[in-house]
């Protein structure tokens, strides 16, 4: 059975671009789920099982760092790997994401190759 991925980003355009890049990278997901912010992702994960999460950092309501923290406190989902994707490639914010449990990071703008290099080893 194929794997399922959750894309968390407040931009619907960016969610479409990420989904297209996943296909271009040859990453075979049986289903791509989407959420527009961290809280909506937490709500969705209460009922949907996914294998990996790709999350933006700069989002309204619950940003990517807050999402990582909230997820780490829920036993049922805390072990799902998260890769952060952000315009903010600075070491500080990526370091903070890593300390909160992120397994990798991708800087916008990105290519399909960049996505494959980070996500591939985690699948």
């Amino acid at each position: 059975m194929g794997k399922r991925i959750l894309i968390v980003d407040d931009s619907s355009t960016m969610r479409k671009i990420v989904a297209r890049s996943l296909r271009q990278a040859g990453l075979d997901f049986s289903e791509i789920l989407e959420a527009a912010d961290g809280q909506l992702a937490i709500d969705l994960l209460a009922t949907e099982k996914v294998d990996i999460i790709l999350s933006d950092i700069n989002m309204p309501n619950m940003n990517g760092l807050e999402f990582l923290k909230a997820k780490s406190e829920i036993d049922a989902i805390k072990d799902i790997p998260v890769v952060v994707i952000s315009t903010e490639g600075g070491a500080d914010i990526i370091g903070e994401a890593t300390s909160l449990g992120a397994k990798g990071s991708i800087k916008k703008p990105f290519t399909a190759d960049a996505i494959e290099q980070v996500l591939g080893p985690l699948l």
Binding site: S11, M14, T87, E88, G89, G90, A91, D92, K108, P109
Partner: peptide, 18 residues
């Protein structure tokens, strides 16, 4: 989103690690 990506790059240029 284009503005967001540009701002992220400019931020890094203006301040070490942004």
């Amino acid at each position: 989103e284009l503005a967001n990506m540009l701002a992220g790059s400019i931020k890094s240029a203006l301040s070490e690690n942004g």
